[in-house]
Write a protein that binds this DNA or RNA. Sequence first.
DNA 1: CGAGCCGCTGACAGCGTTGTCACGGACGTC
DNA 2: GACGTCCGTGACAACGCTGTCAGCGGCTCG
Lengths: 332, 332
Amino acid sequence: MTPRATVYDVARAAGVSIKTVSRVVNGSDEVSKETRERVMTAVADLDYVRNPIARSLRTGSSDTIGVVVDSIADPFFASLVSVVEQLALAQDVSVLIASTGRSVSREKGQVLRLLQQNVGALLLAPNGHDHRYLLDAAPGMPIVLVDRGWELPGFDTVGVEDEDGGLRATRHLLAHGHRRIAFLGESPELTTIVHRQQGYLRALAEAGLAPAPELVRTDCSVAAAAAEATEQLLRLPQPPTAIFSSNPRASLGVVSALHRADRLDVALVSFGDFDLADALRPAVTVVDQDPGPLAQAAAVRVLARMRGQRLPPEDIVLPLQLVERGSGELRP
Amino acid sequence: MTPRATVYDVARAAGVSIKTVSRVVNGSDEVSKETRERVMTAVADLDYVRNPIARSLRTGSSDTIGVVVDSIADPFFASLVSVVEQLALAQDVSVLIASTGRSVSREKGQVLRLLQQNVGALLLAPNGHDHRYLLDAAPGMPIVLVDRGWELPGFDTVGVEDEDGGLRATRHLLAHGHRRIAFLGESPELTTIVHRQQGYLRALAEAGLAPAPELVRTDCSVAAAAAEATEQLLRLPQPPTAIFSSNPRASLGVVSALHRADRLDVALVSFGDFDLADALRPAVTVVDQDPGPLAQAAAVRVLARMRGQRLPPEDIVLPLQLVERGSGELRP
DNA sequence: CGAGCCGCTGACAGCGTTGTCACGGACGTC
DNA sequence: GACGTCCGTGACAACGCTGTCAGCGGCTCG
């Protein structure tokens, strides 16, 4: 392996100073056409590529974007990261990943770690409610909050109409005759879930129903917990005839439990699609929260900011679609 | 935001030279106890952290590991990346991701890009067969090939007993009375799939059966293609009574197609587990290829090498387990 | 015709770190 | 007492790049 060419090599080959090489490879316009061409030839000949590390040390920034999510293993975030990586690659931007495991303190640690690595931008699915630390830890850094974190003005946010989704899912079940509808959620730390639950409650209120506390579970952060919760719900003296599962991880658990208990008569709407949802019998009706467009919007935004575009912070809210497949149309 | 403290600040505070600070924070043992303590106090007082970028520029390496896989969106690789990231985090190592989309040239480009970023190690699920370019592009770099790439000596490899898995899956179906067993695979570029197919063929041969060409599909790289292939298989004059799907992505397609066609009598064994495989009716029998231990083994290995441990290259082959759940035990 | 400006270019410093090398003092050896 | 050795330490350069500033030639303008 021959060592990479540096600006000095190119400068020597082109008969110019290293500064001029720097100007050319950075697309500065204050270089004459002839000089530029001479340098470009040398660059091509020597197969020169800018050293991103030296660049980063000098400038204090870099063409790397830090992506901080709960877990890369979660299909939702996996898709998100995948899309971001694809779009980043197209602009020669690298992606550093960091997982929070839903922990506020770990999130903070990860963000600080990424900042030390001079990332040029951050894509963050935030935990908890207080993200002011971002303001003084990383002033001026392009930051896009994705999926969650509405309460923090000053940053771009990209998410979906959580409350509306919860509302429509619940209305859908009500419209099919259900009166005892369970809600499966998780930590009240997650603004998305809270909003979905608000939609659920609003739909019930519209229908003149009082929410039944025993039908609301907020401890279903993993599939197994949701399965367990489902079993318990089915054992209630007055069990639910329908379930609104507020995230796809929980839905996996619900589906497992319903199949195991042979209770395929229980209606189900899932917030968030998942693999095989349409292959099951009955196929699962979902409020489709596709990570693709979400990630796309977030990535486009953050990449634009990285390129130096000055944009006013914006809250992008993507619409949702209710996909009827069968499980949500069962009658009690 | 106050700017981070540098070695100079620490040196001044501790009354030593910057070099001594460097020695202390790098755990060099040629520093007297008193000096070390003085420096450590200053480090703590000033909240000093090494600047990884400057470090990387100076040393030509870094505490970052590059992970190159087909796609982060694939649950198998998502789990893998997730495990690697967790273990890396515990050692303050960062993870840069890069996807190949199964393209040999894109893989090469991504690897070179990561090398420019001074990654300290590479974890690679290789495409194609020729990886000698790694030898001169990154001599001496810790590289672990994961899941695939057996034909390349000189690197660590971590994988599973692909042929044995294919053998056992097919034997299992044969033992349950099947004689027409379809094989769903994909590109012959993927050594894993090829080996699984060899296992399939060997099992057939053991049973004295000639392989039926029309039952072997090697075009099922995505779920939709596998679904399509399944439908075509079922329409054959002599359709298969069992299917061996050689990867979980294909299995999703098979399951969808079987459910859609209401042909739940067709036996199925999947190489690789997937969500809901145990919730379906019948639940899907799998050769369990858990990405967890695979990733763990690979990560442990690569991290050890990054810490400078000199280890002879090793081929780690993890055992597989056949998980009977129902679909593989159906009789024709 | 000199002052001022503009377009292009280069010398140099410095980002924060680690590798090289040299030095002073303590100690052991003959 | 002269010498070599070892330990702890520091001065300095360098990694490859970009920001600052200055310089140079040619132009316009009063």
